[in-house]
């Protein structure tokens, strides 16, 4: 048995060469793509995002063309993103909380004691994947939905105001939302709790604050993360109250960065 044990490294004099700068990133990449939740989440994002956009455009194209709807056409070409964002939240939370749920986090931190490196690698893998997936989802939804709008003569060109921005913006918003969920996951270390907090903030609290009276309600609505961040993902919003796309996204990025900073401090200090 001892002959298969290895290369007798324990007799070595020199320290082994440090692994390359990308080692942690590669480890997180392998981890990310070797659990079923990743393809399932991304598949669900595509089906919900592209499918629902296509469906709602197909169903409302005629009414939109007649001018019966009273909503801007631009609000429809990325319509499904509102639902697809749930999958970004789930994936972002799971990237962190599944490690706490299974005890894997101890294996991770034993392999890479530099916790900031672990966090950076997780964030890079998650956001790059979500950006690509969100962009492709929005693009497919636009192509599918716009085909029906074109038939009614009200289609939007990619070069029309805000269309390309909303497609890339869908990717950006997914990436940001996933990172927000991961940061919350790092703080609460529990899948159900992380999902409840983030989905509650985006879907429930984000809409409830609209009923607050006066300027309070208006600004709370503008600044809630889901509301601020999502306006970049649509050429024109159903809700005229929201911040301008890039302004809103900047607010959302700042909010995400703040939660992530707190999570990073807690993560690097607490026992695994």
């Amino acid at each position: 048995m001892s002959s298969t044990m290895g290369t007798h490294a324990w007799t070595r004099i020199e320290t082994p060469a440090p692994p390359g700068a990308t080692a942690t990133l590669r480890a997180e990449w392998v981890k990310f793509w070797t659990v079923r939740s990743t393809p399932w989440s991304l598949g669900a994002m595509f089906v919900l995002g592209a499918g629902l956009t296509t469906l709602v455009c197909a169903l409302s194209a005629e009414a939109l063309a007649r001018g019966d709807v009273g909503e801007p056409v631009g609000a429809f070409v990325t319509w499904g993103i509102v639902f697809a964002q749930v999958t970004a939240v789930v994936l972002g939370a799971l990237v962190v909380t599944s490690e706490y749920g299974t005890g894997m986090i101890r294996a991770t931190l034993a392999a890479t004691p530099q916790r900031s490196a672990v966090l950076a690698a997780k964030a890079a893998v998650l956001t790059s994947t979500l950006f690509v997936a969100g962009t492709l989802t929005a693009l497919a939804g636009y192509l599918g939905g716009n085909w029906f709008l074109d038939r009614e003569g009200i289609g939007l060109a990619l070069t029309d105001d805000g269309v390309l921005r909303s497609i890339l913006g869908s990717g950006l918003y997914m990436a940001g939302l996933g990172l927000f969920a991961a940061a919350v996951g790092l703080l609460v270390r529990h899948t159900a709790a992380a999902l409840a907090v983030v989905l509650g903030l985006v879907f429930v609290v984000g809409n409830l604050v609209m009923v607050l009276p006066g300027a309070w309600g208006e600004w709370a609505t503008k600044l809630m993360p889901g509301n601020a961040g999502s306006s970049i993902a649509t050429p024109e919003s159903f809700n005229p109250l929201l911040l301008d796309p890039w302004v809103g996204f900047a607010v959302f990025v700042a909010e995400t960065a703040a939660v992530l900073a707190v999570a990073a401090v807690v993560f690097t200090r607490r026992d695994a």
């Binding site: 390359g20 480890a27 659990v35 490690e99 005890g103 101890r106 034993a110």
Partner: peptide, 26 residues
């Protein structure tokens, strides 16, 4: 180190578990 046996993700294969560990330390 062998920590408690549950420090594994149940959905990942044994080979993949070892693959990410190997990657993390070059």
């Amino acid at each position: 180190a062998l920590l408690e046996a549950s420090a594994l993700h149940p959905g990942r294969s044994a080979r993949d578990h070892l693959r990410w560990l190997a990657a993390s330390n070059g």
